[in-house]
């Protein structure tokens, strides 16, 4: 059914427009005051009939949607339908005009053959226009549906992302940290308490920040600090840190959990594997209109690299940044024999 038929106000407005069009035509037509009643009596029902008939193009347009590959057949169908409809309405018009006999006239109005021809022509044009407008309407509806689907898809993607973020909380990390706390309780209760608090803060912030679209770098750094505090207790003096963040960068916005997974990789695949540990360097700069982050860690030059974990994490990060920034985000990885560096560049947002 035509959408207008489900909407009484819309339908009334539409028909009123046709009545007004009929009146306008009557103004152009009537030459003597005595003709008014006959011309209006003839034109208004025909205008309404044309209006209602024009709506039927909707089903034609819907049944044979415009497709670039088949434009010949779809256009010819529309033309044929418009011409047929014009003929039918003209037939009805002739019949209606003939009712003038009831009042003893030849017709309600007098129509010359030229006028008839013009009439059929106008009707055809009206129906063709109607087809055009319905096509436009359908296209707009399709766009609306597509947008709604897209919105839903992005919502779903976001939910997925939060799920993934939650899974990123490594159970190995959690249980080993609890084991460290269990050990510290005996030797250094104050450190055990501090570690418990770091662990709690880390998890709280991971869950809290993960649900937001953008956070300040300062917030992410706070999370990373808790994470590093825990790792430093677990690894002892194997883990050394150099954190260098330009003050302005702390206020810059970025998606949550961009730095933390990088630092986690730097420890898991870098410092942890080295007998003597090593230095993790973390920096944030503000060059031009961008936010530049860098995490760098030493790697075991002799070990065969098991890079599957690193690769997956980086791929995930890349695709996250790409969905959010498109071509405006860069992730550069530099891997030398003894050092692994990841650089991220994002548009500056405050």
């Amino acid at each position: 059914m035509h959408p207008l038929l489900k909407n009484p106000r819309g339908l009334a407005t539409y028909l009123l427009a046709w009545v007004l069009a009929g009146c306008a035509l009557a103004v152009a037509w009537v030459q003597a005051p005595a003709e008014w009643i006959w011309v209006l009596g003839f034109l208004l029902p025909i205008a309404l009939l044309t209006g209602m008939s024009a709506l039927s193009m909707y089903s034609i347009c819907r049944s044979f949607p415009l497709r670039p590959a088949k434009w010949m057949s779809t256009l010819s169908r529309r033309a044929a339908a418009a011409a047929l409809l014009a003929l039918l309405v003209s037939g009805a018009t002739a019949l209606w005009n003939a009712t003038g006999a009831l009042w003893g006239r030849d017709g309600l109005v007098t129509l010359t053959p030229v006028a008839w021809l013009a009439f059929v022509g106008i009707q055809t044009v009206v129906f063709a226009l109607s087809a055009l407008m319905h096509d436009a309407l359908l296209a707009q509806q399709a766009i609306q549906v597509a947008t709604a689907t897209e919105a839903q898809a992005s919502l779903l993607a976001r939910e997925m992302e939060i799920k993934v973020l939650r899974q990123q909380i490594d159970p190995h990390f959690l249980f080993n940290s609890l084991n460290s706390i269990s050990s510290l309780i005996q030797f250094d209760p104050a450190a055990a308490r501090a570690m418990t608090i770091d662990l709690a803060q880390f998890f709280r912030q991971t869950l809290g920040l993960g649900e937001r679209e953008r956070i300040r770098l300062g917030e992410e750094l706070e999370l990373v600090q808790h994470y590093l505090a825990i790792e430093q207790r677990r690894l002892g003096d194997k883990l050394r840190l150099s954190i260098d963040v330009e003050a302005a960068c702390r206020m810059a916005y970025l998606p949550p959990l961009v730095l933390q997974p990088l630092v986690e990789n730097a420890i898991k695949h870098g410092v942890r594997q080295l007998d003597l540990g090593g230095l993790i360097e973390l920096s944030a700069r503000h060059p031009g209109n961008r936010l530049a982050l860098c995490v760098s860690n030493p790697v075991d030059a002799l070990a065969t690299r098991d890079a599957t974990g690193v690769g997956q994490g980086l791929r995930h990060l890349r695709s996250r940044l790409q969905t959010q920034y498109g071509e405006l985000a860069f992730v550069d990885v530099e891997s030398t024999a003894d050092r692994f560096t990841v650089q991220i560049s994002l548009p500056w947002q405050t």
């Binding site: 080993n176 050990s183 510290l184 207790r233």
Partner: peptide, 12 residues
């Protein structure tokens, strides 16, 4: 064990 605290716990 690669974690000093974990080794200390086993000793304890």
């Amino acid at each position: 064990d690669d974690e000093p605290l974990a080794r200390a716990l086993v000793r304890a």
